[in-house]
Amino acid sequence: MIVLYGHVLVLAGMTFFLGLVCILVRRNLIMTLIGVEIMMNAGAIAFVGASLKWHVLDGQIFVLFLFGVAAAEVAVGMALLVTAHRQADSLDSETFNLLKW
C-alpha cells in the first residue's frame, strides 16, 4: 500500500502548475522551454500513477513515448532558440513581436 491515487494526481497537478507558472511569468525563452519540460514530467507522473492504479501497462508505455516526444521537442526547441538568438541577439520573449498586430 502506498498512498491514494488522488495524492499522486495532486502531486502531478502541482508540478504541472509550477511549469505553467514558469511559462507564463518568466520572460526568458530558455525558461519557457524548461517550463514545458516540467509540465511533460508532471504528465508522466500522472500516467505512471494511473497505470499502477488500474494495473494497465499502457500508461507506462505512453510515458515511454512521452520521453521520445520530449527529447524531439527539446532538440527542435533548442535549435530554434539558437537561431532566434543569432538573428535578434536576445532571448527575451518580448523581442520577438514582429507578428504582433
Binding site: N41, V48, S51, F67
Partner: peptide, 17 residues
C-alpha cells in the same frame, strides 16, 4: 517512478531527462 512500479522508466528518466 521506481516506487510506483516502473523501474525501467525510472532509469529512462535519469538517462533522458
Amino acid at each position: 517512478f521506481s516506487l510506483l512500479g516502473a523501474p525501467f522508466l525510472a532509469i529512462l528518466e535519469v538517462v533522458i531527462y
